[in-house]
Design a protein around this nucleic acid. Structure first.
Lengths: 328, 328
DNA sequence: TATCAAAATGTAATCCATTACATATTTGAT
DNA sequence: ATCAAATATGTAATGGATTACATTTTGATA
């Protein structure tokens, strides 16, 4: 591979001039620029980003931390991140943490190693103190998850409000016994959605018992299905609606309802959260809360890049939207 | 951020010694190593990968090109790639080409720029000649897609055989009129699966007409649904089974069957291809062809790394498996 | 034509780590 | 105690680009 030296020699100029043609073309005569560009063409020269990055001490790389790439929710956010990052001349490093602290550390080291200029994290299981400390040294933006009291920048939706509204919608439809399928409460969104759920119940004077809330460790189709199986065998007839805090769980639960011949929505209403693509393909289609996932990713990048440039940024809370479909 | 110089000064040794502690600890006295490690600890030193990469002229980064990240099929492969790459000390750059040549070029430039040590491409729409030429200079492995006549390394399954077997399965079940929902034939897999489909028909002496094959431009749920809608309105009653070359298309088609109240599998059988997670959640569950996607990704990385090291590699064809479920 | 500011180009330091080669130190046998 | 061999450490070049500063060229003006 040819280097900038080779080009300089071939064009009969100095390396500085070649570099200028690349970076500040206006500082170079038309004639020399032509010479240099011809030489580059001839040699099929492409500047080594390794060299450039070292000199500029930047990597033009953004770290994106997600629990699992197979969760469609994160996927759409990542799409938003990717597109926007690319527009700004950054590439992204998508890393799955599997919600394990060791993994997280490994990836955060990429910041220390200057392999990434900043990070967007969507993983809530992180050791918060460490994250806060890291954020003092490196540009970091939290996406979707956040921490109220801590000094970390974030972009999210108002999960509590959305859950409150969705629950209220179910209550207004006449449901009195609603089961909440929650994911692990280490996730802030899980705690928030539960809070909104309870607030709505309270407002409608529905008495509430702890065993109306089911928790799952994994956010997978199977986990949702499992919960519904167990619900149907223990509590059949005692509830008429299910609120799952994630579409993936809702889809699994819906599947079990289908299998057991429980008619949706006549015998049982079910709602999810996120509006992932699949919710449009279930039978019946799933009522859910739309999060502007793509936009969230896109803005997260904007925020992060501002941070990298040393600008001040403000936290962002995006709007959500209830999507009422045939499962209710 | 401290540099290796800082550590050297603090530990009272030369930079060479610090580097040795990092790279060849055996070449250093226990005592000095301790000193150096203490210094590193104290300064919270992490070696700059930028510097290291420049010196070693490698980036320890692999390029992964996929058409669209939102296609669950590629997703699972990417998981396999990520895990395996990480085990080998490589990070991956997942890039969506959106099947556009401009995008591809941009990403391939990352190879020329030494930002990636090699590439795994799953995108078939690439300008093949350019790819072949590129592969002469850089380590490249094709995954899932490939080119028989060209000199490019690849890993794949035998799509033709799988499609043949699946079609035969349908024929044995007594279906005589089977519609093929194909994706764009620019994809090799599309051409291969069609070939297998036709081979089976021929073997069963089924006369074949061109209008039994539907092509879609996009591999999305909506596209599958659209095709089925059109099928039902133009050809209702004239066919009893549908073979979609991709689960995503099959799921969309199945959705339309559900909507229109066509019973699956009694009135209509439907099969897909890939065994993406969601096929387990449809109603009824989808019969499909399992591709060892994770393994495919994993082996692709092994191949690529061997190539990077300059070793010889052989192409790989992995086994597939028919997954017979309730949609047939 | 001589002069001089502005524009263009060149020289060399710099970013940070690795490593060949040179030098210093230790080891152990005599 | 001595010295060669083996081991440990240091010096300095290197990788490829950017850029402050120095130098040369250009071209307008007197």
């Amino acid at each position: 591979m040819p280097t900038i030296q080779d080009v300089a020699k071939k064009a009969g100029v100095s390396v500085a001039t070649v570099s200028r043609v690349l970076n500040t073309p206006s500082a170079v005569t038309e004639k020399t620029r032509q010479k240099v560009q011809d030489a580059m063409q001839e040699l099929d020269y492409a500047p080594s980003i390794l060299g450039r990055n070292l000199r500029n001490s930047e990597s033009r790389m953004l770290l994106v931390l997600i629990p699992k790439i197979s969760n469609p929710f994160y996927l759409r956010i990542v799409e938003g991140i990717e597109e926007t990052a690319l527009d700004h001349g950054y590439n992204i490093l998508v890393c799955q943490t599997h919600s394990k602290t060791e993994r997280e550390s490994v990836y955060f080291d990429l910041l220390k190693n200057r392999l990434a200029d900043g990070a967007i994290t969507m993983d809530p299981t992180i050791d918060k103190d460490k994250l806060v400390q890291l954020a003092r040294q490196f540009p970091i933006v939290q996406c979707s998850e956040y921490d109220k009291d801590k000094s970390l920048s974030y972009i999210t939706i108002d999960s509590e409000l959305a859950a409150y509204q969705m629950t209220k919608f179910l209550l207004k439809q006449g449901h009195k016994r609603i089961v909440l399928i929650n994911s692990d409460e280490k996730f802030l969104y899980a705690r928030e959605r539960k809070k909104g759920f309870l607030r709505a119940l309270k407002e409608f004077d529905i008495e509430f018992e702890d065993d109306w809330i089911y928790k799952t460790n994994n956010v997978t189709f199977e986990a949702g299905q499992q919960v519904m199986r167990s619900l149907l065998s223990h509590k059949a007839g005692k509830f008429t609606a299910v609120f799952a805090v994630s579409d993936v769980l809702a889809i699994g639960a819906l599947k079990e309802l289908n299998i057991q011949g429980v008619h949706v929505p006549d015998e049982m209403a079910i709602v999810g959260f996120d509006k992932i693509d699949f919710t449009n393909m279930t039978f019946p289609r799933l009522t859910t809360v739309a999060q502007p996932m793509y936009k969230m990713g896109s803005i997260a990048v904007d925020m992060l890049i501002k941070k990298i440039r040393g600008e001040e940024i403000e936290d962002v809370i995006l709007d959500h939207e209830l999507i009422i479909r045939e499962s209710t």
